[in-house]
Computed example of a mutant assay.
Amino acid sequence: MFKQLSQLVLMACLSAGLLTGCSFSEKQEVQSLFGYSMGTSYSIKLVAGLNESRNLQLGIEGVLSNINSRMSTYLPNSDLSKFTEAPLDQALPVDPKTSIVVAKALEIAKTTDGFFDPTVAPLVDLWGFGPTPRNNEVPDEQQILAILDRVGYPAVSVDLNSHNLKRSEIRELDLSAIAKGYAVDEVANYIESKGFSDYLVEVGGEMRFSGQKPNGSAWRIAIEKPVPGEREPYRIIDVSDAAIATSGDYRNYFEIDGRRFSHSINPRTGYPIEHDLASVTVVMDSCMEADAYATAFSVMGKEAALELAERLNIAVFIIFKKEDGFDSIQSSQFTRKFGAL
């Protein structure tokens, strides 16, 4: 009888352990989660037990789905789609998350003198990098000038108290260069709310790191050599408790008669970038901010990017093109964090 009772208790405990962990502790190892959301992929590595990590997946996808439903330019009922249809000078109530991201986007647009501009969407679409299918044609000057009249962040305002957006002129919002970073931050916050402190979160290439691996070593990241079609590391750094975003012109572009047209559009000129900056990696506490600044630095070019990074005390690593390959420069804050070149 006692033996049977013991077996029943053990079986009950094992069954409960599948849901709650019972009184057993799982081995803490680096677990991996993968999925798709926001039009891209995500991957997460965290130090946890196997069942613990699996129980997080649904919540993580809920976080990403909620952000996408509000900030997508493809979904007709998203906050951004409603903003495009809203009457001029009329306040549009939006989700608090949307207002936070738009406010930060407008702040960084002002700080970067418009090299980052969340109203650049019509230009991106004109050049074939938006929702409209690409025809690999170069727009003429009159088309570009006409679209430039619909670009300019000062015509957009946000009220963080009432969570309202307003536009004084015809404008569209595209948060693709900041929303992925925000999503990384939100997923990281969700993971921490569940009691985990050692993790790596990646959404569409933007990342945030916390803590360390089970053996006490730091997370490692390879900054890629900016060569199309290759995945070769240019530099490897150890990271903990930081967010990283990279922007470059070497993955999304089209060519006509040997001339490359990058997806990185200068909102001030209406044309794709043509300077020698190939990629820029930004390290900050906030992935949302790192994402936006990486875009701005990529557009403005290496000299202006390094100057602004020094002024704002941002850790930046820049790879630029040379006739015989690539070279790199970095901000003093990057040197303090990761060492000299």
Score class of each variant (00 low, 15 high):
Lys3Pro: 04
Gln4Ile: 15
Met11Ala: 15
Ser15Arg: 13
Gly17Arg: 07
Ser23Asp: 08
Glu26Cys: 03
Glu26Thr: 08
Lys27Ile: 09
Val30Gln: 01
Leu33Met: 06
Tyr36Ser: 06
Thr40His: 00
Ile44Asp: 04
Lys45Asn: 07
Lys45Phe: 00
Val47Lys: 05
Val47Asn: 03
Asn51His: 07
Arg54Glu: 10
Asn55Trp: 00
Gln57Leu: 08
Leu58His: 11
Glu61Gln: 02
Glu61Asn: 11
Gly62Thr: 11
Val63Ala: 02
Val63Met: 00
Ser65Ala: 14
Asn66Ile: 04
Met71Arg: 04
Asp79Ser: 07
Lys82Leu: 06
Gln90Ile: 11
Ala91His: 05
Ala91Leu: 05
Ser99Val: 06
Ile100His: 15
Val102Gly: 03
Val102Ile: 12
Lys104Arg: 14
Lys104Leu: 08
Glu107Ser: 15
Ala109Leu: 14
Asp117Lys: 06
Val120Tyr: 04
Ala121Thr: 08
Pro122Ser: 06
Gly128Ser: 09
Phe129Cys: 15
Arg134Asp: 11
Arg134Asn: 15
Asn136Arg: 14
Asn136Thr: 14
Glu141Trp: 02
Glu141Tyr: 09
Gln142Pro: 06
Gln143Glu: 14
Gln143Arg: 06
Ile144Pro: 10
Leu145Gly: 09
Leu145Ile: 14
Leu145Thr: 12
Ala146Asn: 14
Ala146Ile: 08
Leu148Lys: 07
Gly152Leu: 07
Tyr153Asp: 14
Asn161Gly: 12
His163Val: 00
Asn164Met: 01
Glu169Cys: 00
Glu172Asn: 08
Asp174Met: 00
Leu175Ala: 09
Ser176Pro: 13
Glu186Asn: 02
Asn189Val: 01
Tyr190Arg: 03
Tyr190Asp: 00
Ser193Leu: 14
Lys194His: 05
Gly195His: 06
Asp198Thr: 07
Asp198Gly: 02
Leu200Ile: 05
Val203Lys: 05
Gly204Phe: 07
Glu206His: 01
Glu206Val: 03
Met207Asp: 00
Ser210Glu: 07
Gly211Leu: 11
Pro214Ser: 13
Ser217Met: 12
Ser217Arg: 03
Ile223Tyr: 04
Lys225Glu: 06
Pro228Leu: 11
Ile236Trp: 02
Ile236Asn: 13
Ile237Lys: 05
Asp238Met: 02
Ala245Thr: 13
Ala245Val: 08
Gly248Ser: 10
Tyr250Leu: 10
Asn252Met: 06
Phe254Met: 13
Ile256Trp: 12
Asp257Glu: 15
Asp257Ala: 13
Arg259Gln: 10
Phe261Lys: 12
Ser262Lys: 03
His263Arg: 12
Pro272Ser: 05
Ile273Arg: 02
Leu277Arg: 09
Ala278Leu: 00
Ala278Val: 04
Ala278Cys: 03
Ser279Lys: 04
Thr281Arg: 08
Met284Ser: 15
Asp285His: 13
Asp285Cys: 07
Ser286Met: 07
Ser286Cys: 09
Ser286Tyr: 08
Tyr293Asp: 09
Tyr293Gln: 11
Ala296Met: 08
Val299Asn: 05
Met300Asp: 03
Gly301Val: 04
Lys302Glu: 01
Glu307Met: 11
Glu310Tyr: 15
Ile314Asn: 10
Ile319His: 05
Glu323His: 09
Asp324Phe: 03
Gly325Ala: 09
Asp327Thr: 12
Ser328His: 12
Ile329Thr: 14
Gln330Ala: 10
Ser331Cys: 11
Gln333Ser: 15
Gln333Val: 12
Arg336Asn: 14
Phe338Asn: 14
Phe338Tyr: 12
Ala340Phe: 09
